[in-house]
Amino acid sequence: MADKHTNLIVSAAPHVCNPTDTATIMRDVVIALIPALAVSTYVFGIRAILMTVICAAACVFFEWASRKIMHRENTIGDWSAIVTGVILAFNLPVGMPFWMAIIGCFVAIVVVKQIFGGLGQNFANPAIVGRIALFIGFATPMTTWSVTKNMSQAIINNAGVDAVTGATPLAMWNAGAELPSNLEMFLGTINGSLGEVSALALLIGGIYLVVRKVISPAIPCAFIGTVAVLSLIMGFDPIFQVCAGGVMLGAIFMATDYVTSPITTSGRIIFGIGCGIITMLIRAYASYPEGVSFAILLMNILTPHIDSITRSKLNGVEKKGAKK
């Protein structure tokens, strides 16, 4: 996901002038997220929209407040905080208390981004870290998928009884329970984090971003492809593994963040494959049912190394950072 785009700002000459700026890119990302929001509103009811709006507003507020405290230029106009907020909301269970979600926004915007100097200077994706911090810090609410009474009423009205399950498909899979059909998984009439449920809607958003040239397809393809191939090797159902949990959302919107992913195409492929491998390792073996966010964070941290090995060599310059 294009959270920010320093690589476009901080570059060697010549500087090519292009009408595409951060705000345009971020607006495209928001547009691409709308189908998924629509589906989750259909599945979970109005609280899905409420959660998304609250997260986006909290992120914008924290962005504004921290820039104000640091006496720096205001950056809320670049839409990046809104995108972070929406994506973070997409990563949360819909019944999550709002104050917890707001703490997640604080972690994402202030701790991960503004402490490091703001837009483009963070080394990890803000939404990912916000999600992981909530996931570890508030383990119970973050994994409580059974919805409240009001909520389940809304769900029954909206989507039929199918959706009122107490566990996500991945948790059911981990526990060895009966799973939803692949069609349900693909369309998204299942339980899960707010924006993760519909693979189809996320895919539509992803295609829009690729067509608009906001993201390159290298990372999503490598990520999703690796998950599918590894599922086959490990003897799991690849369609289920790809549609379940955060793979689609992570691969299309979070792993593709310009700032925290490699610059070159070969680097991006390595990045995507790495994400896929770690995701499947955590799913299959670790005590957490889902590993997408940990996988992306670890690859974010490895990005400088990936960049240094895949950077195109300059003629006549000794390669830096090469192993002795």
Binding site: W99, V111, I136, G137, F138, A139
Partner: peptide, 15 residues
């Protein structure tokens, strides 16, 4: 309210 348990874990210490 629920404590934010990450604070007593390693990342919380560094932070």
């Amino acid at each position: 309210f629920s404590p934010f348990t990450i604070l007593i874990m390693a990342p919380g210490g560094f932070f």
